[in-house]
Design a protein around this nucleic acid. Structure first.
Length: 437
RNA sequence: GCGUCGGUGGUAGAGCGGUCAAAUACAAGGGACUGUAAAUCCCUCGCCUUCGGGCUACGAAGGUUCGAAUCCUUCCCGGCGCA
């Protein structure tokens, strides 16, 4: 994997010509090139829900992210390996990534059965009091042990123990171009003492992930180079004039380390320094945030992370967050929202999100957005999509997800272009004024 | 015509003397969703309300009861059976 920065964002607010954290780059992977900043489509179970790979690609997607935990449970990482890796398995010809399962430590652990998610609204300040409420008897499917995490499968209740080594082994079997270290995503409801402990654990796990990755990579390199298929396959098919055939290089899966540290400035910076000191190919920024804390955390971290390596803001993807992240030096985003919202009847428009099931759209014969070039907008009306949703037709989720994914992927592309055109801040202001109105 | 079973909120359908403005489901109206436990979940859903409650309601009209969607009588309407 190679990462090149093409242009840095000039800070309009600061002195003339002074650069800030934002940048435009190109990331080369064995399965193609990613123009960054980029939005990564989430395909947890080796499928972007309700879309086939052609639809994902037509939306402009460059890279898809699967999940270690889900694919390990079903169909099993050995099956995916047998299929030739996640990309081949799911018929996605471009770059792929896998998440480590670290997020499931959170979503199936502390967050299980609770109203805690990736983003926490501080409507209930009691959630953020610096005392860890004792809920150790609350049901959860993930329990953190000394060495790793035991998961109770949400599918059949079976128990599985995932360590950093195990996560990396699974990810090597899944065979994505970019994989992540096993981490613990903490809840913002945890107190500082716990955040410190968890961070220490995440750091040890980062070292162990890296060690295992290096071990496995060495083994893979010394054995038959073409054993994992697709290395030399042509790059991204669509709109990719810049996709030169990847030159011959060392076969390598790239490993990204993950920075945690919750909402605490010292911990975040400490984590950024420590993770930077390890030989990762890039970095993920993780955590469950109170929305208000996200931009500061990203800034703290990216000021420390080495400039020449790519950064991925894990699980983030509302339009306003994308502007924030890119301005502060984030290169990659992934988020379930385009497809989840789409399936649930919420659709992105330049004037904000709409609920297509609302009465007013039943006889609205305009497309979702008049000037949108996505497949759904070019071919269908709001009334029709509303009808599909009311009728619970499968196509409903597909058409809405198609549009949403196109909307977000292309928003990031436009932001990228705005940096190249030196009008990022104008574009941001203009867009958000309309979108957030 | 006789007999019989039934008529409950937008629909289907519980309830069969008080705890019933009436289960449940669907429909309807609204909301949530940020490294996917999610084609999911939450709220509202007779009318009015100063959110305490008030009013009108279980085909219609009478009646019995302290009290009726629930029991009785008559009528209206529907299904079925027999003429």
């Amino acid at each position: 994997m190679q990462f090149k920065i093409e242009k840095k964002l000039k800070n309009s607010k600061g002195g003339a010509g002074k650069t800030c954290l934002g940048r435009v780059g190109v990331l080369e992977t064995p399965h193609g090139v990613i123009h960054t900043p980029a939005f990564v489509a989430v395909g947890t179970k080796a499928t972007v829900k309700s879309l086939n790979p052609e639809q994902v690609r037509e939306a402009g997607t460059q890279v898809v992210l699967g999940n270690t935990y889900h694919l390990y449970l079903q169909p099993g990482d050995e099956i995916v390996r047998g299929a030739g890796g996640i990309g081949k398995f799911m018929n996605w010809k471009g770059p792929t990534m896998t998440d480590s399962g670290g997020f499931q430590v959170f979503s199936l652990g502390v967050a299980y059965g609770k109203d805690i998610s990736k983003l926490l609204k501080i409507t209930d300040p009691s959630l953020l009091i610096p005392e860890r409420f004792d809920d150790s008897d609350a049901p959860r499917l993930a329990k953190i042990g000394q060495d790793g995490v035991s998961f109770k499968s949400h599918l059949d209740g079976s128990i599985h123990y995932i360590t950093p080594e195990k996560s990396i082994q699974i990810q090597h079997n899944l065979g994505a171009d970019i994989i992540f270290a096993f981490d613990e995503c903490t809840s913002p409801t945890e107190d500082l003492k716990y955040q410190e402990e968890a961070l220490e654990r995440t750091h040890r796990w980062a070292e162990r992930s890296l060690r295992e990755h290096q071990k496995l990579s060495a083994g893979e390199n010394s054995s038959s180079l073409g054993s994992l298929s697709g290395l030399a396959s042509p790059a991204l098919p669509l709109g990719s004039s810049a996709c030169e055939t990847p030159q011959k290089r060392e076969f390598s899966t790239a490993l990204f380390g993950i920075v945690q540290g919750g909402r605490d400035e010292n911990l975040r910076k400490q984590s950024a320094k420590f993770i930077s000191s390890l030989d990762f190919d890039g970095f993920g920024i993780g955590g469950s945030f109170a929305k208000e804390d996200m931009s500061t955390a990203v800034k703290w971290v990216n000021e420390i992370l080495p400039e020449e390596k790519p950064r991925h803001l894990l699980g983030i993807g509302e339009p306003e967050d994308l502007f924030m992240g890119i301005e502060n030096g984030v290169d990659l985003f992934d988020c379930v929202l385009p497809t989840r919202l789409g399936r649930n009847g919420t659709i992105y428009t330049k004037n904000g999100k709409i609920h297509i099931l609302n009465t007013q759209y039943r006889d609205d014969f305009a497309p979702i957005e008049k000037d949108c070039e996505c497949y759904s907008c070019k071919n269908y009306t709001r009334a029709y999509i509303a009808h599909l949703f009311h009728g619970k037709e499968m196509l409903a989720g597909t058409l809405a997800s198609t549009h949403n994914l196109y909307f977000i992927v292309n928003l990031v592309k436009k932001i990228r272009q705005s940096i190249l055109d030196d009008n990022f801040f104008e574009f941001k202001e203009e867009f958000l004024k309309r979108y957030l109105k």
